Simulated scan of single mutants.
Amino acid sequence: MTDRAETLLAHAPVFQGARAADLRPLAALAAFRSLTRGEHLFREGEALDTLYLVSSGSVRVYRLARGGTRELTLHVEGPRQLVAGVAAFQSRAVAPASAVVLQTPTEVLGLPAGAVRERVFGTPALAQAVIAYFARRQAELLTRVEGLVFSELGERLAAYLLDHARQPHALPTNSELAALLGTVPELVSRKLGEFYRLNLIHLERRTVRVTDPAELARLARGHREEGRAGERSRPPSGT
């Protein structure tokens, strides 16, 4: 079990470049946990004393809108990714969002957050790896926010399909996909149907396969290119 935990830690981007000797003490404290679809690792506002690393499957991290009627998916974490890792590096950490399992089976590796903090803060190589990882994740989150604000649903869905469905892939439910893309299930269903009729994807039940990646790529970047063209053609203010 310790060897498997050490292997997972060594391949996790958060510890990229760290020495095996630095990871071994953490692996000795780790424990694997199996979960099924719909189970929560934690909910927003709960004390967070465990650092979770996905071993297999996927976990969706989301926040509830005011009134609890809508969800905003912040990101989906797959194998070797941390779940709400930043919060776990704070003393007396509180979960800033909720984390729910997307598929069965999903397995996560849990590490005591306090022990991880102590080890990372006292080991320069680990600290450097963790800081670099969180810098990359911040850039990814900013890109996601920009996409939600400035892009159309077709662009966001095309980008999602290209990122996740290069091989036959089980789609989340329309509700989960809508939360991930910042829209409502009805529009997701309509847009998936449109992509299917245009032969951009093959869809059987919830299994999707991309059949025209070039056109999906054009759709995914088209809105941004149009926006840039508009900026270039716009006359300077005051003229």
Score class of each variant (00 low, 15 high):
R70P: 00
A18S: 14
P213H: 11
K191Q: 14
T207C: 06
L192F: 02
P172Q: 10
E155H: 05
T207P: 04
R190H: 08
E186V: 09
F150D: 04
G182Q: 05
A27S: 10
R228Q: 08
A84E: 14
L187D: 05
V54K: 00
T173H: 02
E44M: 06
L126F: 10
A65N: 06
H40Y: 11
L51F: 01
F121R: 14
L109E: 03
E6N: 07
R218D: 09
R224K: 11
N174E: 11
F121G: 02
T211I: 11
H164Q: 15
V94W: 03
H202D: 15
L48D: 03
P79H: 02
D49N: 10
L198G: 02
F121D: 11
S34Q: 12
A159G: 14
E140S: 14
Q128R: 15
A95L: 06
V94L: 13
V208N: 06
A135L: 13
S175T: 12
A27R: 08
V108N: 04
V54C: 01
S98M: 07
E204F: 08
L219H: 01
V61L: 09
S151G: 05
A88D: 00
T123W: 09
F134S: 05
A10S: 15
V59K: 08
A31Q: 12
G68Y: 09
L35F: 15
L187Q: 10
L23M: 11
A179F: 00
G38M: 00
M1W: 05
V101H: 02
R197K: 14
T73G: 14
L148Q: 12
T7V: 06
V83L: 05
S58Y: 05
Q128T: 12
P79N: 03
E77N: 04
E186Y: 08
A20H: 11
Q90R: 12
V100E: 13
S55P: 00
P25C: 02
G45Y: 07
E77G: 00
R43V: 10
